[in-house]
């Protein structure tokens, strides 16, 4: 009966229509087309990974969705509304953590709640509970009073994740969040990320994630769909469904389907990857 008010399946969470981004060098006036004709729908609750060769404009796309960067052409919509600038409903996790060095773990996680729109209408106690909840969720209990410079890379990443989640965004935009970590830490955090992503949602209503990575196996392990980008200018070259069932465990990395998908994506990127280093 309430069909009209229910979020229809056809309505994507994010809609990017022919988005392009052109940079003009201030002195020379030289134009560089970073992203061209980028069209993509991101479904509500899906985990979408974007992979592509270095410098293909992955981060530019993410920044435009975040509202930190303005497209020079096309349109970006969230829930049918034009994206004009940054907002707390689209949380961003940056590659190099972007933690506030003068704030403790607790205050970093609670920064948005304390100073931003996500904390509006919450009492101090409610904010505190929320901070504690997410600090515990990412396994940082006991480290609340530490400062970023006292933490390892993996722990900083956990703080960044807790800070992202504490603000309760609708869409999680993650820019190579595990890129700076060593291989082992990265694999551990991938599993944890999936756990938290599924667990943080209420009754199967998962958050929408746009996750940028240069790790193809990481994309296959995490994503529902993988967008493969090509560069000069950055475009969508393929969208690949990852039909590996969830919940995903470490063991899927050795399954044949995992290898097939990884190979398929690699074959799409390989030529450009070789060109990039040549």
């Amino acid at each position: 009966m309430n069909v009209a008010t229910m979020p229809s399946k056809a309505q994507p969470k994010l809609r990017l229509r022919n988005v392009s981004k052109e940079y003009v060098a201030p002195r020379t006036g030289q134009r560089t087309l970073a992203v061209s004709d980028f069209t993509l729908d991101v479904r509500a609750g899906e985990f979408l990974c974007i992979v592509g060769p270095s410098g293909c404009g992955k981060s530019t796309v993410l920044n435009m969705i975040a509202g930190l960067d303005q497209p020079t052409g096309g349109d970006i919509e969230m829930d049918g509304h034009h994206v004009r600038g940054p907002g707390a409903e689209r949380g961003v996790m940056f590659q190099d953590y972007a933690l506030f060095p003068w704030k403790s773990v607790r205050d970093n996680v609670g920064f948005g709640l304390r100073h931003g729109t996500p904390g509006a209408g919450l009492t101090a106690a409610e904010r505190n509970d929320r901070v504690n909840h997410f600090v515990n969720m990412v396994g940082l209990a006991g480290a609340e009073a530490k400062f970023p410079h006292q933490l390892s890379g993996g722990m900083k990443q956990r703080v960044a994740l807790a800070r992202l989640l504490a603000n309760g965004p609708d869409v999680l935009l993650m820019d190579e969040p595990l890129g700076a970590l060593d291989a082992q830490t990265r694999m551990v955090l991938q599993v944890e990320l999936l756990r938290i992503w599924g667990e943080a949602a209420e009754e199967g209503d998962r958050k929408t994630v746009v996750f940028i990575t240069h790790g193809i196996d990481e994309a296959v392990f995490l994503a529902d769909r993988v967008v493969v980008m090509s560069s000069h200018p950055g475009r969508v070259s393929a969208v690949i469904d990852i039909d590996i069932p969830r919940p995903r465990r470490e063991s899927i990395r050795s399954e044949p389907r995992f290898g097939q998908l990884t190979d398929e994506i690699w074959s799409l990127i390989r030529d450009e990857a070789y060109q990039a280093i040549a």
């Binding site: 940054p86 707390a88 940056f94 972007a98 506030f100 100073h115």
Partner: peptide, 12 residues
Amino acid sequence: KLMSAAETMGVS
């Protein structure tokens, strides 16, 4: 990046 991070948290 810190400024950007705060902007995406709705910090004025």
